[in-house]
Amino acid sequence: KLNEKEKELCQMVRLVPGAYLEYKSALLNECNKQGGLRLAQARALIKIDVNKTRKIYDFLIREGYI
């Protein structure tokens, strides 16, 4: 299910792929509902370490998901 970049992200932030996909889905759904997504909203949405949230958020922006 994951592409190579997503696999690298999961290894870097030490997330299991299932958890990453869950977080990605939640962030994309919220982004679609709101018409955009700020980091503060992402942090409130997924209750994990803020540094991990930041890396996931930055990755999703860089890859054009949000």
Results as ranks from 00 to 15, higher is better:
Pro17Cys: 04
Lys1Gly: 11
Asn29Asp: 12
Lys33Ala: 11
Val16Cys: 14
Leu2Lys: 00
Gln34Tyr: 12
Leu2Ser: 01
Leu37Trp: 06
Gly35Pro: 06
Leu21Lys: 06
Gln41Lys: 10
Arg43Ala: 15
Lys1Asn: 12
Leu28Lys: 07
Ala42Gly: 03
Tyr23Val: 13
Tyr57Asp: 07
Lys24Val: 01
Tyr23Gln: 00
Asn32Trp: 11
Arg38Ala: 15
Gln41Gly: 05
Glu22Trp: 09
Ser25Arg: 14
Pro17Val: 02
Leu39Lys: 03
Gln11Tyr: 05
Thr53Trp: 02
Arg38Trp: 06
Asn3Ile: 01
Cys10Asp: 02
Arg62Val: 00
Gly64Val: 03
Glu8Thr: 08
Ala40Arg: 09
Leu2His: 05
Glu63Met: 05
Ile66Leu: 14
Ile61Val: 14
Ile48Pro: 05
Ile48Ser: 10
Ser25Lys: 15
Arg14Trp: 01
Arg62Leu: 04
Glu63Gly: 06
Tyr23Asp: 03
Leu60Asp: 06
Gln34Cys: 12
Arg38Thr: 15
Leu28Cys: 12
Arg54Ser: 14
Cys10His: 00
Leu37Ala: 06
Gly18Phe: 07
Leu37His: 04
Asn29Met: 08
Asn3Gln: 09
Tyr20Lys: 01
Ala19Pro: 02
Tyr23Leu: 09
Leu37Ser: 06
Ile66His: 10
Lys52Pro: 10
Ala40Pro: 09
Asn29Cys: 08
Lys24Pro: 01
Gly18His: 11
Ala19Ser: 09
Glu6Ile: 08
Glu8Met: 10
Glu30Asn: 05
Arg38Val: 10
Ile66Asn: 04
Lys5Met: 05
Glu8Cys: 09
Lys1Leu: 13
Gln34Asn: 13
Glu22Ile: 04
Val16Ser: 15
Ala44Cys: 10
Arg43Trp: 07
Asn3Val: 05
Tyr57Lys: 06
Leu15Tyr: 07
Gln41Tyr: 04
Val13Lys: 02
Leu27Thr: 03
Gly36His: 09
Ile66Cys: 05
Leu60Glu: 00
Glu4Asn: 12
Gln11Ile: 06
Ala44Thr: 11
Ile61Gln: 12
Lys33Arg: 13
Leu60Ile: 01
Ser25Ile: 09
Thr53Leu: 12
Asn3Trp: 00
Leu9Ala: 00
Gly36Val: 07
Ile56Lys: 00
Gly64Asp: 07
Gly64Gln: 06
Asp58Gln: 10
Glu6Phe: 10
Gln34Pro: 07
Ile56Glu: 01
Gly36Gln: 08
Leu45Ile: 13
Lys1Val: 12
Leu28Tyr: 05
Leu39Asp: 06
Asn51Gln: 08
Ile61Cys: 13
Met12Trp: 05
Arg62His: 11
Asp58Ile: 00
Ala26Tyr: 05
Thr53Val: 15
Asn29Gln: 12
Ile46Phe: 07
Gly35Asp: 09
Cys10Gly: 01
Arg62Asn: 12
Leu9Asp: 04
Glu8Gln: 14
Ile48Thr: 12
Ser25Met: 12
Asn29Leu: 07
Lys5Cys: 02
Gln11Thr: 11
Asn29Arg: 13
Gly64Met: 01
Val13Trp: 05
Cys31Gly: 07
Ser25Leu: 09
Glu63Trp: 03
Ile66Ala: 07
Tyr23Ser: 03
Ser25Thr: 14
Met12Asn: 14
Ile46Arg: 05
Gln11Leu: 07
Ile46Met: 13
Glu4Ile: 08
Lys33Ser: 07
Tyr23Cys: 10
Glu30Pro: 05
Arg62Tyr: 05
Leu9Pro: 00
Tyr23Asn: 02
Tyr20Ser: 02
Arg43Tyr: 13
Lys33Asn: 10
Lys1Trp: 09
Phe59Met: 02
Val50Phe: 10
Cys10Leu: 09
Ala42Cys: 09
Cys31Leu: 06
Ala26Asn: 08
Phe59Glu: 00
Ile48Glu: 15
Lys55Asn: 13
Glu22Tyr: 05
Glu6Trp: 06
Ile56Thr: 04
Gln41Cys: 05
Gly35Cys: 06
Glu4Tyr: 07
Leu28Ala: 07
Ser25Gln: 15
Val50Asp: 15
Met12His: 14
Ile66Glu: 06
Gly35Asn: 10
Gly18Gln: 14
Ala19Gln: 14
Leu45Pro: 05
Leu39Ser: 06
Leu28Trp: 08
Leu28Glu: 09
Met12Thr: 13
Gly36Pro: 07
Gly35Ser: 06
Met12Glu: 15
Asn29Trp: 06
Gln11Ser: 14
Pro17Tyr: 02
Asp58Gly: 04
Gln41Phe: 02
Lys5Ser: 08
Gln41His: 08
Leu60Arg: 00
Lys55Arg: 11
Leu37Val: 07
Asn32Ala: 14
Leu27Pro: 00
Lys55Phe: 07
Thr53Glu: 11
Lys47Asn: 14
Ile46His: 09
Lys5Val: 04
Tyr65Pro: 03
Gln34His: 13
Lys33Trp: 04
Lys1Ser: 11
Ile48Gly: 12
Ile46Gly: 10
Glu22Asn: 11
Gly36Ile: 02
Gly36Lys: 09
Gln11Val: 05
Phe59Lys: 00
Ala40Ser: 15
Val50Gly: 10
Lys55Gln: 13
Leu21Gly: 01
Ile66Val: 09
Ala40Cys: 13
Leu15Val: 09
Lys55Tyr: 09
Ala19Arg: 14
Gly36Asp: 07
Ile48His: 10
Gly18Pro: 06
Asp49Glu: 10
Ala19Gly: 03
Leu39Glu: 11
Asp58Ala: 05
Gly36Cys: 10
Asn32Arg: 14
Ala26Thr: 13
Tyr23Ile: 15
Ile46Asn: 06
Ile46Pro: 08
Leu15Ile: 13
Ala42His: 03
Tyr20Trp: 04
Val16Ile: 11
Ser25Cys: 10
Tyr57His: 07
Tyr20Cys: 02
Ala44Tyr: 06
Asn51Ser: 13
Tyr23Pro: 03
Tyr23Ala: 13
Arg43Thr: 14
Leu45Ser: 07
Gly18Tyr: 07
Glu8Leu: 12
Asp58Glu: 13
Cys10Ser: 04
Asn32Cys: 08
Ile66Gln: 05
Cys31Phe: 14
Glu4Phe: 11
Lys55Val: 14
Leu28Val: 15
Glu6Ser: 01
Glu6Asp: 01
Asp58Pro: 00
Ala19Trp: 01
Lys24Trp: 00
Tyr23Met: 12
Ala42Trp: 03
Phe59Gly: 02
Leu9Glu: 02
Asp58His: 08
Lys5Pro: 03
Lys33Ile: 10
Asp58Val: 00
Gly35Glu: 09
Lys7Thr: 11
Glu22Ser: 12
Lys24Ser: 02
Gln34Phe: 11
Tyr65Met: 14
Leu15Gly: 01
Phe59Val: 01
Tyr65His: 14
Leu45Phe: 05
Leu45Gly: 08
Val16Tyr: 12
Ala26Pro: 01
Thr53His: 01
Leu60Val: 01
Leu28Phe: 06
